[in-house]
C-alpha cells in the first residue's frame, strides 16, 4: 500500500498557486532558443548542420512537452480558457498533441498508476521494449533506432492513446498546422516544419522513451530520480524529472517542484543506480505490473543476470569506443578524400570510388579527423583489454599515444612516408589520451550490485 508522503498543508497550498509569469517566461525562452537554432542552421547552411539540429531541437521539444504537461494539469492559470489557449498554441499543438486528448490519457495514467488500468501499460505491452532485466544491446539499439525514425510505431501508438476529444480541438490543431505550413510554403521555408517534425519523430521521441524507463519501470510507484543539472537541462527540462513529487502532488506547477522536493525527505536514486537496477533486475516483461526495484534502487536479480549484463556492457564498450570511432574515421577517410591511397586499391577494384562526398567538410577536418578517431580506437581497445592497474597494461596502453606521436615524428624525420603535420601530431596524441581518460572507468559499473566473489 502506497502511503502519501506527509506535507504541511499550508506549504502545499502555497506551492500549488498557479502563476502565468513563470510558465510564460519558460515558454518564451524555449521558443527563442528554437528560433536561434533555426537561424544558426540557415546561416551555416550545411547538411551536417541540418542533421545535427535535431538534437537541440529535440531538447527544446522536451521542454515544451514539460510545459504542455503543466497546461494539461491546469497549472498555468485557474482561468481555463486562458490556460488552454496558452498551453495549446505555445506547447501542445506544435508537438502535434491536443490538451483534451492528452488529459484523457494522462489523468487515467495518474489514477491507474501501478495497475493495468494505466494506459502507459498498454503502450509498454503493445510495443514490448521495456523488459526487465534490461538487456544493454537491445536497449541501446532501440535508442539508436529512434535516430533513424524507429520511434514511428511508438508515435502512432501514442497518437491513438491521446486522440483529440472534441471537434473544436481537431479543428484547432488542424488549422494551426495548415496555417503554419501555408506560411512556410509562401516564405520558401518548408524545411523548417520538416526539420521540426523529423526532430519530434527522432530525438524528442527518444527522450520520451528514456522517461518511460526512468519514471515507473519495475515499481508500482514512481522512481524518485536525481538528475544532474546539466543533463536535466538537456533531456529532462523544467524539472520534468521530478516525477515522484509530481505524481504525489500534481497540483504543484513545475517551477515549484524543486521546493516541493526539498520539503519531502526520503530516499532518492541517481540515474546510474537506476540503470544498474534495470540491468540486474528480477524479470518483469514489458507491460506487466510488478515491484522488482525498490525506492533505493535495490533489486533481486540472480547471479546469472548480473553476469550476462556485465558481458553485454563490455560488448557495448568495445562497440562504442573501438568499432564506432574506427568506422567514423573510415567513413570520413573514404568518403571525403579526393583520392584513395594504394591500401584501398582492392576496394576500387570492387567498383568503390572514394571521395563521393568531397567538399562537404572542411579539408583540414578531413585530414585530421581519421587520425584522431583511429588513435582513440586503438588506445581505447588497449585500455579495455588491459585496464589501467597493471604495469604491463600501462606499457601496452602507452603504445597508443606513442604510435600517434611516433608516426608523425617519423614522417618529420623522413623515416615514414607521408608529410609531417603538427595538427595531426597534437590531435592524434590528444585523441589517444582522451581514450585513456574516458575508458579508464566504465560509465556504468555493475560491481556494487554484483555478488562478492566466493572465497576458495
Amino acid at each position: 500500500m502506497r502511503v502519501r508522503p506527509a506535507i504541511d498543508p499550508e506549504l502545499l497550498a502555497a506551492l500549488s498557486v498557479p502563476r502565468v509569469a513563470p510558465w510564460l517566461c519558460a515558454a518564451v525562452v524555449d521558443w527563442l532558443v528554437v528560433v536561434a537554432i533555426f537561424a544558426l542552421v540557415a546561416w551555416v547552411d550545411h547538411p551536417v548542420a541540418y542533421a545535427l539540429a535535431v538534437f537541440p531541437l529535440g531538447s527544446r521539444q522536451q521542454a515544451l512537452g514539460a510545459l504542455f504537461h503543466d497546461a494539461a494539469h491546469h497549472l498555468i492559470t485557474r482561468r481555463k480558457g486562458a490556460n488552454d489557449a496558452l498551453g495549446s498554441v505555445l506547447a501542445a499543438w506544435p508537438l502535434g498533441l491536443t490538451l483534451g486528448g492528452y488529459r484523457a490519457y494522462h489523468f487515467a495514467h495518474h489514477r491507474g498508476l501501478g495497475t493495468l488500468d494505466d494506459p502507459e501499460m498498454a503502450h509498454k505491452g503493445g510495443l514490448r521494449q521495456w523488459h526487465l532485466p534490461a538487456a544493454p544491446l537491445p536497449v541501446a539499439a532501440s535508442f539508436a533506432g529512434d535516430l533513424v525514425l524507429g520511434g514511428i510505431p511508438h508515435l502512432v501508438a501514442a497518437g491513438r492513446l491521446t486522440k483529440p476529444v472534441s471537434w473544436r480541438e481537431t479543428l484547432g490543431i488542424g488549422a494551426f498546422w495548415l496555417g503554419l505550413l501555408a506560411i512556410a510554403y509562401r516564405a520558401h521555408l518548408v524545411w523548417i516544419p520538416v526539420l521540426w517534425i523529423v526532430s519530434i519523430a527522432t530525438v524528442f521521441w527518444s527522450g520520451v522513451r528514456l522517461r518511460i524507463w526512468t519514471e515507473h519501470l519495475g515499481t508500482k510507484d514512481t522512481h524518485r530520480v536525481v538528475v544532474p543539472t546539466w543533463l536535466a537541462h538537456a533531456i529532462m527540462p523544467h524539472d520534468i524529472g521530478l516525477h515522484w513529487e509530481h505524481h504525489w502532488f500534481p497540483s504543484v506547477p513545475f517551477w515549484n517542484l524543486a521546493k516541493l522536493r526539498a520539503a519531502l525527505p526520503g530516499p532518492r536514486v541517481t540515474l546510474t543506480e537506476l540503470a544498474r537496477a534495470f540491468l540486474t533486475s528480477a524479470p518483469l516483461p514489458s507491460g506487466t505490473i510488478g515491484e522488482t526495484i525498490d525506492a533505493e534502487a535495490r533489486t533481486m536479480g540472480d547471479e546469472a543476470t548480473v553476469a550476462a549484463a556485465g558481458r553485454d556492457l563490455d560488448r557495448l564498450r568495445y562497440a562504442g569506443h573501438v568499432a564506432v570511432p574506427l568506422a567514423l574515421g573510415g567513413f570520413v577517410y573514404l568518403g571525403f578524400r579526393p583520392k584513395l591511397p594504394r591500401l584501398f586499391a582492392p576496394l576500387e577494384a570492387l567498383g568503390f570510388r572514394g571521395g563521393l562526398l568531397e567538399g562537404y567538410l572542411p579539408p583540414r577536418f578531413v585530414d585530421v579527423f581519421p587520425d584522431v578517431a583511429w588513435a582513440y580506437a586503438l588506445t581505447a581497445l588497449l585500455v579495455l583489454v588491459w585496464g589501467t592497474r597493471e604495469l604491463r597494461g600501462k606499457l601496452w596502453i602507452a603504445v597508443g599515444p606513442g604510435l600517434a606521436a611516433g608516426w608523425e615524428l617519423g614522417q618529420l624525420a623522413g623515416i615514414f612516408p607521408g608529410s609531417y603535420d603538427l595538427a595531426d601530431l597534437v590531435f592524434g596524441v590528444a585523441g589517444a589520451l582522451a581514450a585513456v581518460v574516458i575508458c579508464k572507468e566504465p560509465a556504468l559499473s555493475l560491481s556494487p550490485a554484483a555478488p562478492a566473489p566466493k572465497a576458495e
Binding site: Y333, K339, L340, P341, R342, L343, F344, P370, W374, L378, L381, L382, V385, W386, G393, W396, V399, L403, W407, Q411, F416, P417, G418
Partner: peptide, 30 residues
Amino acid sequence: MTMRLDVRHLVSLLAVAAFALLALGSAAAP
C-alpha cells in the same frame, strides 16, 4: 611448470600491427 602466454598480449600486438599497417597504407601515395 609451463609458460602460458596471456592472450591479451596477442590481441594487443595484432591491434597495434593492424593500426601500423593502416597508417602505412593510408600514407602511401595513390
